[in-house]
């Protein structure tokens, strides 16, 4: 494995896309999402400094090293003038805890699977919706979300379809991620965004028009 992996959280533009712009956009979206989450849970939710990763798609799983970790993911696809895949991922235990909080029950064991599923869907809607708002405001593009889809599986298995999709259009995957944390310090979730080539281009053009 000699291929280069670059992880940036400051602007350091590669050939085409200004990563700083994507990062800025992501941060706005993540900020909105954290605010909505704080309201739901009635407790402060903090976000980590978001990161943009560009690396060959197949290197992504070894970057996270969560191969076998049972994960619940909500996936929402944005379509329209630009396309973007957004994934919200929680470890299964974490998803149960969140569902218990949203359903106002004491213990995660008291949540039945249906209630948990709808709670996680709802959470996905809220978080991803915040992202969508930021994205539309910023680009002025008309974006339509598909209904959220949920899956519970190992971390790697959930990720691979998205990586394949990125691979079809580019040698490098661009993904944005941030982690939500509750006050007690438990890591609650990872949010990933895979902008399509079109969206990456739209964002760059937008950024240029701001500068000039």
């Amino acid at each position: 494995m000699t291929e280069s992996v670059t992880t940036k959280n400051v602007e350091q533009s590669p050939e085409e896309v200004d990563l700083g712009i994507v990062l800025e956009l992501g941060s706005i979206g993540a900020g909105h999402a954290a605010t909505s989450l704080s309201e739901i849970f009635q407790e402060p939710i903090s976000i980590e400094v978001p990161k943009i990763h560009t690396m060959p798609p197949h290197m992504v799983p070894s970057h996270y090293k969560k191969h076998d970790v049972p994960t619940t993911a909500v996936y929402m696809q944005l379509r329209g003038e630009a396309e973007c895949d957004i994934l919200l991922m929680f470890e299964v235990e974490e998803a149960k805890k969140i569902a218990a909080m949203m359903n106002m029950v004491e213990s995660p064991d008291d949540v039945d699977p249906d209630m948990e599923a709808s709670a996680i869907d709802e959470l996905g809607n809220i978080v991803i919706g915040s992202f969508l708002t930021a994205l539309s405001d910023f680009t002025g593009a008309n974006l339509v979300p598909n209904p959220p889809e949920r899956a519970t599986d190992s971390f790697d298995a959930i990720l691979d379809s998205f990586l394949i999709k990125q691979m079809l259009s580019s040698d490098m995957a661009m993904l944005f991620d941030t982690q939500f944390k509750r006050a007690d310090g438990n890591i609650s979730g990872i949010l990933m965004m895979f902008p399509s080539r079109d969206l990456q281009r739209t964002l760059t053009e937008k950024a240029k028009s701001w500068v000039s």
Partner: peptide, 14 residues
């Protein structure tokens, strides 16, 4: 496998 039907509909059945 095809884990997400939206992905399948959009980007062929990989």
């Amino acid at each position: 496998a095809n884990m997400f039907s939206n992905l399948k509909a959009n980007s062929l059945n990989i």
